[in-house]
């Protein structure tokens, strides 16, 4: 289930500041690290002010190998 992502951006969530966007361009993600994959509703995204979104990063899920 490996993925190729084009024009990808990484979103870093924190409790103090709003969401930070890091541009990651073209990347290949290994399938066994993926938890959820989904199609984004771009209109909904436009209505959200990401500067005000404050939350903890989602805790990682450790599989049996790592």
């Amino acid at each position: 289930m490996n993925c190729v992502l084009q024009n990808s951006e990484e979103r870093v969530y924190s409790l103090e500041t709003g969401v930070q966007f890091l541009n990651a361009g073209l990347q290949v993600i290994r399938g066994d690290t993926v938890a959820v994959l989904g199609e984004v509703n771009l209109e909904k995204e436009k209505s959200i002010d990401f500067d005000k979104v404050k939350a903890n990063q989602l805790p990682p899920i450790f599989s049996n190998t790592h």
């Binding site: 084009q6 361009g25 073209l26 990347q27 290994r30 066994d32 690290t33 190998t65």
Partner: peptide, 18 residues
């Protein structure tokens, strides 16, 4: 080892070639 990799990031030149 492949099974220890999380992800690869490729640079823009690699993107054009790809």
């Amino acid at each position: 080892k492949g099974n220890s990799i999380k992800y690869f990031r490729l640079n823009p030149d690699a993107e054009k070639k790809a």
